[in-house]
Amino acid sequence: MHLDPFELHRPTSVEATVRLAHELHGRFDYLAGGTDLLPNYKMHLNLRPHLIALHDVAELSGHSPTRIGAMERLAAIDEDAAYRTAYPVVGDAVGEIATPLVRASGTVGGNLLVETRCFFFNQSYFWRESLGFCLKADGDKCHVVPQKEVCYATFSGDLAPALMVLGAEVEIAGPTGRRRLPLGDLYDAKGDGIRRLAIAPGELLVAVHLPADAGSWRGRYRKLRVRPSFDFPELGVAVAARFDGARVQGLRIAIGGVEPRPRQFDELTRPLEGGALSDDRVRELAARLERSVRPVHNTFLAPDYRRRMVGVYVRRALADVREVRAG
C-alpha cells in the first residue's frame, strides 16, 4: 500500500516549524510518529500535499517529571519506571496504548492529537466511496446520526484523560508566539468529531507540563476494549484524588473513548470534595457520570454497554485510588 506523493519537510526549530506551517497554511499535516497519520493517509483520508516532520526539532524531545516534549515516544514514558511510579495514572494509560510496536514510534503529542475515530471514517477510499462519503472526509452526511450536520467520531486517545486529571497544561506555538492552556481546553467544547481542537490549524504542540502538585494526586486509568492489546479505548476512565485522612480533598475524573473529546467532570466531582468517599457517594457519582456521556454506535462495542461501563469503571478506578491511599 503506497502513499500518494507529498513533499516532506524537516525543520529543526520550533520557530522554523511554525513559520513553515504559516507558509503552507491548510496544505500540510505535522508528522510525529506517524502511527495515526500514516494509516489514515494510506486510506486516503484528508490527504495534504506537504508533511512537516517534527523529528529534527530538538526542543520537542525528552521528558522530565514536569515536562514531556511532544515528540517524546510513548515507549520512553512506558520504560521509565520512576515516572510511572510518580504518576501511576499516566503509567496505566501509556502501557495500554495500542501495542509495544506502536508505542515505539508513537509520540505523546501525536497521542493527544490523535484523529477521532469512527467505523464509517477509518475505512479505505473504496469502502467510503461505496457507502457515500461522510462529513468527516470528502462527503456531506453522517452515517451514524444522519439527521444532523455534526460528526460524532470518537476521541480515542488514552493519554489525554490521564494527563488531564493531573492538571496538565499544553504548550502551544503559533505564528504569534507561545502560550499555555489547560490540556482539557485543547479540545473544543463547542466542536465535534471534525472540529475537535480549540487551537488553530497549524499550531504546534510543543510540550505537556505537569503542575508541581501533580505528584500529590493519586490516580488510575482504566481502559475498556475487546482485546488487551491493539485495540483503541472504547472507554477510558482516569481518576485522581487527594486525601486528607478519610476525607477526599480533591477529586477529578476525566473520560475518553466515548465522545468526540475527552471530558473532565469537575461539576460532578467538586461537590464530593471535603467529604468522605463513601460507597454511597461513589455509587451516585458513578451513576451520574454514566448518564452524562453520550456514546454513539460507531465503534465495536454497543453504545449502551459502553455507557453502562462508565459507572463500573468509575467505581473501580475510585476503589483503586482509595486502596492506594490505604496501602
Binding site: S130, F230, F300
Partner: peptide
C-alpha cells in the same frame, strides 16, 4: 469476539484491527 460484522451488505470490519483475533494475554 471474531465476527464478520455487516451493515447492509457492507462489511464493517475488514481489518485486523477490528476483526478481533485473540492476543497472547
Amino acid at each position: 469476539g471474531e465476527t464478520m460484522s455487516y451493515r447492509g451488505g457492507r462489511l464493517l470490519n475488514p481489518s485486523l484491527l477490528e476483526y478481533k483475533i485473540p492476543m497472547p494475554q
